[in-house]
């Protein structure tokens, strides 16, 4: 039973699995009950998550997107797995301009809503999603506008809706 694992055991096992991986990864424990593993390349994600699943280590609690800002030019996707009190985070930095990541839904079906949210809020192309439709944003939301990015400008929406209503008035 994975839930009977203690926090310390979970962190030890996760360190064992993820840090001592065949290719090197950066890892840091920001707190005793946390382990942050930063991947060098997005393609390392699937093997890493598979490794966690094989060990039945935790469940996917959240996928958090972080925009490091236009100057930095990167987005960071955080896959947070929880077991007991431990939070194991797989951090995947991806370029802002070409944000593409593999879908986890084949491994974890429950990841679907998180990925749909991630793709519409941060403009991340998630490859292999079964249902790429919008989850939260309205049907008439303008393409290419991603609200949780740091450079999101709400006036875009104002203009977009103005154009729409003008177009509707002409009809």
């Amino acid at each position: 039973m994975p839930t009977s694992m203690t926090t310390a055991e979970a962190i030890t096992l996760a360190t064992d699995v993820l840090v001592n991986w065949v290719w090197p990864v950066e890892a840091a424990p920001p707190a005793p009950d946390r382990l942050d593993v930063t991947l060098k390349e997005p393609k390392e994600l699937i093997p890493m998550v598979t490794a966690l699943r094989v060990q039945r280590l935790g469940y996917l609690s959240a996928i958090t997107g972080l925009d490091l800002g236009p100057e930095d030019g990167r987005l960071e996707i955080l896959y947070q797995f929880c077991v007991a009190a431990a939070v194991i985070t797989i951090r995947v930095p991806i370029p802002r301009e070409d944000a593409t990541i593999q879908s986890l839904t084949d491994l974890i079906p429950g990841a679907e809503p998180y990925e749909r949210e991630l793709s519409e809020m941060f403009g991340v192309t998630v490859v292999g999603m079964r249902n790429p439709l919008r989850l939260y944003l309205p049907d008439d939301w303008p393409e290419g506008v991603y609200p949780l990015r740091k450079d999101f400008d709400p006036s875009v929406l104002h203009n977009h809706h103005k154009e729409q209503s003008d177009a509707a008035a002409e009809d």
């Binding site: 959240a62 958090t64 997107g65 925009d67 947070q80 429950g110 679907e112 809503p113 998180y114 949210e117």
Partner: peptide, 26 residues
């Protein structure tokens, strides 16, 4: 689930909220 990122000011840099219903919706 709450994820809070602070950049040292009095305004958070990011707050992520993952509510229970979304997990159960699947």
């Amino acid at each position: 689930f709450y994820f809070i990122k602070s950049d040292g000011t009095d305004i958070p840099s990011r707050v992520k909220v993952r509510t229970p219903t979304i997990c159960n919706m699947t």
